[in-house]
Structures are given as structure tokens and as C-alpha cells.
Design a protein around this nucleic acid. Structure first.
Lengths: 291, 291
DNA sequence: AGGAGATATAGACGGTATCTATGATCAATT
DNA sequence: AATTGATCATAGATACCGTCTATATCTCCT
């Protein structure tokens, strides 16, 4: 089998029309190039160059070979350029899985920053529930996932992100509850609005109530955090939301937090990646920035 | 600079999805392949494969590289296949320069034979006078030339071919000259038809007459051997032609040779190639066959 | 738990790619 | 015609590195 390194030498010899020039381009000596060409000629059993005192010129056979090798070498240089781009984050793709609310309230500043610094990298945000995101990750459809902890999966490696605090909030309609400390029992007298069944936060709070001997059953169930907030503002009930996601509404007073006599458990955001799987350069730097 | 040999290894590893399989395809051991891939990854600073117990799979970066390298490697294999074809004379081109009459009366059987054995090779017959053929040869427009000897040119290498004998012939109109031995003087009483001025044979015979103290001036001058023959048959004069080229007409009696008291000099056909220039495989074998 | 199959690592060896030095050839210049 | 300055070719020595064997590590499957 022919050593492909020889084609590199052949390419430069043909391109420059001189073994000496080829040697310079390849940081070799002229005899090395001469030897390499000879090897190629011997293995094909064909003469590739006419030699004269001015340099070399392709024979018909050499020209045929060159027509293929030139393309081949050009592709390789393109490949090398592309790889350098990927390495330098001048091009590439970064695919992140998670929930829209986490993208919006947690990742957004990092994403903005990253995109400003590496405009050549395409950002793909793929929406999904926690189990879906885990599947995406395992199928290689995303580089990393952003979800609520805890995640227990031996195939995954999770880094803790910021801590979030879920809470119950209500709007002006329930103004009488403001500054009142309530028990679970009292709370359950009011219509409750929860996120859809398969959400991590929903499951956690349901379980908490269960531990205290109560059943948390929502009046209304919605599929988007924005809707959760909107319904609470309109006075349709008391929504269970992440405090950090309604900071604006709490500040402006369109929503207020229900004070409870029980401390609701905080939830940790985690950035998860596949364990023992290499990260793309883009993913690597992005995760570093987020920490 | 990256050793292009590594791309060959990368190609097979990606293609087979297994370092072990790649090693088999390349007649290497698995550690060699593993090492080669590592080298590539190190020089790009990027991970190219996910490794697991089933084999390897391309990372995003690896897939990008593969999209280039695959094409490149395919081109190289095509090149190698093509070179083998050229070597085996399954494809290629053979360009020969010379006069139409030499092609027709001398080279034709060889050409037929060669073409039958190597139908993949394109035959190009390029018509020209001796000096033109020499120019073609020096410019690389033909592989070899077939001309009358002698050729004196230090850049050329000439092999002798068959010997030809020029002679004067006439048709039925001059039947009285048949079997008569004539002198130059007698011959000059008749209208002479000669080939155009710059022909090798014409120059030789003119010089011969001159040496004997005669001036050979044609009544008619033509540019094709066929015409030379035709005019003689029609009785417009006595043509100076190559005997081997009118063997058919001499046999069937439509022409007869004028017997002279002086032996006309024979002329040698030569196959000429560039000295110190490599021949294409096609040209090499063709010349060998002609000998 | 153990085996089969994958890749990674370590260290030794040998082939060969590369170098230096020199020769041969040609072309242009003096 | 001799000289100079290019080119490529050849020979022989050296050292690098590509490849090997042996072994470790990991994962999956029985």
C-alpha cells in the first residue's frame, strides 16, 4: 500500500514544478523529495515527471495523477482549516437541552455572552422535559442538558448550577393572604394551579404534601410557566412557581408570595453531560463559562 | 504539519466504526491505529471519536473532519485505480506524429494490432511534415514521430524502421517506357510529377539529379501521395513515389516502374522519440511492438 | 462473578524517512 | 570555450518514530 505522505510531496512537486521548491514548502531537503517521487514512480511503475535543469514537469501519467491528487490535497487543507476553526470556536454548533424557563431565566445571559464572543457557533436550544433531555443526551442530539436536580443516572455527570426556590404565589384577588403565614391545610382551601404532571418540581411538591398527610390536587394544570404566572395574576388561583422566575412580578407587586409555616425544599439546577464522553470544544468552553 | 498517513487510518476507523477493524484493513495492529488516532486528536486539539466497548463513533468534530477526508480518500483510491489502468494499458493515450502515407502504408498494421489489444487507449495520429513532427515532439504534443531518415538532432533518439525505395512510375499512357532502361536525361524529356517542395524524399531526389548535373523540375507538384499516384495513372506524367506505397497498383498493372540506369538511394523510416525523456507506458509498448 | 471484546498504555525494536555530502547534467554567462 | 549556478540523482549514515508485543482498563453480556 502506498504511503499517503508521498502524495503530499507529489502535490507540491507538481504544483511548484520544482523538487527544490517542494522541499522548501515541506521543510524537507531536496534529496528527500527526490526520493519520495522516485518511490511513487516505482510503485506505480510509471514516470510522473520529466526532469530537466530548470525543474520538473508532469508527464501525461503524472498529469492524470495530479488531477486526482490536487483535489484530494485541497480537501485535506480545507479539513485542516475547518478543524482549526472548530478548535478556535470560530465555527461549530452547541446544542443544549432543557426547559424553556431555565433557558430564559438561567442560561440566557450566558448564551448571550457566548454568542457575542463566538458568533460563528450555531446555538441550538432543544426544549424537553427532564427525561426527554436525558434521552436527547444519550442519543447525542444535544451536547449538554440543563435540568433540575437530583439526577441519578450512572451514565450522566452532573454539575450543580444555581439554587432555585419554588413557592406559591397569588395575585391581587387574594390580597387578604398577603403577609399571612399559612399552613398546608389552609392553602388547600384555595384553588391551586400547578405545572403539568411530569414536571420535576410538581412531583417534588406533591410528595412533600403527601409526607405531611395532605393530597395536593390542582384546580388547573398548565404546560407553560408563563401561563402559570398569568393565571395567578388574573386571580384564577394560587400558582406554584419558581421564585426566581417571577422576580419581576414580585417586585412590581402584581404577584406576592404566600408565606408558609413549612420551608419548601429548594431545588438545584444541574448541568448534565454524558459521563466518559468527550465534549466538543464549544460545549467545553460554554460549561466553563457558566460555572 | 500533519502526517497524511494518519488520515488514511482515520478514514478506515470512521468507516468501519472500529479501531480493530481499521487495523485489519490496513494490516496494522490495533494499538498502532489507536496511537494514530490519538496523534490526530492531539494535533487538532479536538476529540474525534467516542470510544466504547462496542467500537468507536465519530464526535461532531470527527464527523466534520470525516466529511472532508472521506472525499479525499476516495479521490486517492480513484487515482490509484487510474494509475494501474495506465500501467496496464487499459486506458491512456498514444499520440503519434508523421505523414499520412507512413501511417497508412507502414504503421497501419501495428496500429490495428495495438488497438485490438488495448482498446482503452485512445490513438491520436497527428499529421505533419518532418520538421513539424519534430516540433510536435519537442513541445510534447506527440509521444513519438515516424519520419524518413536521416534525422540529425541531438535532442532526439531515432530507431530505424523499415527501408523504403522511391522510384519513378508511369501509367498506361507511357506504356512504351515499360521494360526500357532509361537514363536521367531521357527521363527528363517527360513531364515529371513530384511531391511538394518541403518533402524529404523530394529534396533527396532533386539533390541526386543535381549531383549528376541535371536539374529536376516538376511539371506538376502535389501535396498528397494519393494524388501523386492518381495523376500518374491518368497519364499526366511520371510520378516519383515510394514503391511500397504503390505495390497494389504495380501488381494490378495500372502503374509500372520506370527502370533507370542509376540506382536510386533507398530511404530509411525512423521512429523518433525525445532523448532522455521518459516514455508513457503506451508509447513504450507500442515502440517495442513495431521493432 | 466471569468472560469476551473493545480501546489505552508502556516499552522495545527495527525500518525507513531524512539528512549530509557528492555527483551528474544542463543552461546561461563571461 | 570555460565557468558558474542552477537543477535533480545517488550513496551512505543516522536517528526518529511507526509498529509491534504485552498488558491494563473498561463495558457489556451471560
Amino acid at each position: 500500500m502506498i504511503n499517503y505522505e508521498l502524495y503530499k510531496v507529489f502535490y507540491w512537486a507538481a504544483k511548484t514544478g520544482s523538487l527544490t521548491q517542494a522541499a522548501k514548502a515541506l521543510f524537507l531537503t531536496q534529496p528527500s523529495v527526490s526520493h519520495a517521487i522516485k518511490q511513487l514512480e516505482d510503485s506505480f511503475g510509471v514516470t510522473l515527471f520529466y526532469r530537466n535543469s530548470k525543474g520538473v514537469a508532469l508527464t501525461h501519467e503524472g498529469a492524470v495523477l495530479y488531477s486526482y491528487i490536487e483535489q484530494s490535497q485541497i480537501l485535506i487543507s480545507l479539513a485542516e482549516k475547518k478543524m482549526a476553526e472548530l478548535k478556535n470556536l470560530d465555527s461549530g454548533e452547541l446544542k443544549i437541552g432543557g426547559s424553556d424557563s431555565l433557558f430564559k431565566h438561567y442560561l440566557l445571559p450566558f448564551l448571550e455572552d457566548f454568542h457575542r464572543q463566538h458568533p460563528g457557533i450555531t446555538l441550538s436550544l432543544i426544549h424537553g422535559t427532564t427525561p426527554e433531555v436525558i434521552t436527547f443526551l444519550k442519543e447525542g442530539r444535544i451536547d449538554l442538558g440543563v435540568v433540575r436536580m437530583p439526577i441519578v443516572d450512572p451514565q450522566l455527570e452532573v454539575r450543580e448550577g444555581i439554587q432555585l426556590q419554588d413557592c406559591f404565589v397569588a395575585g391581587a384577588h387574594y390580597a387578604e393572604l398577603k403577609n399571612k403565614t399559612m399552613s398546608f391545610n389552609m392553602l388547600l382551601q384555595y384553588p391551586i394551579i400547578l405545572f403539568s404532571r411530569n414536571s420535576r418540581a410538581r412531583m417534588a411538591v406533591t410528595e412533600l404534601f403527601h409526607d405531611y398527610g395532605y393530597e395536593l390536587k390542582p384546580e388547573i394544570e398548565v404546560g407553560s410557566v408563563d401561563l402559570l404566572i398569568e393565571l395567578a395574576r388574573k386571580g384564577l388561583g394560587i400558582s406554584y412557581v419558581t421564585r426566581e422566575f417571577v422576580s419581576k412580578e414580585l417586585e412590581e407587586g402584581s404577584l406576592f408570595e404566600i408565606r408558609l409555616d413549612v420551608q419548601l425544599p429548594p431545588s438545584q439546577v444541574g448541568i448534565m453531560i454524558m459521563r466518559n464522553m468527550p465534549l466538543s470544544s464549544a460545549a467545553k468552553t460554554f460549561i466553563e463559562r457558566v460555572r
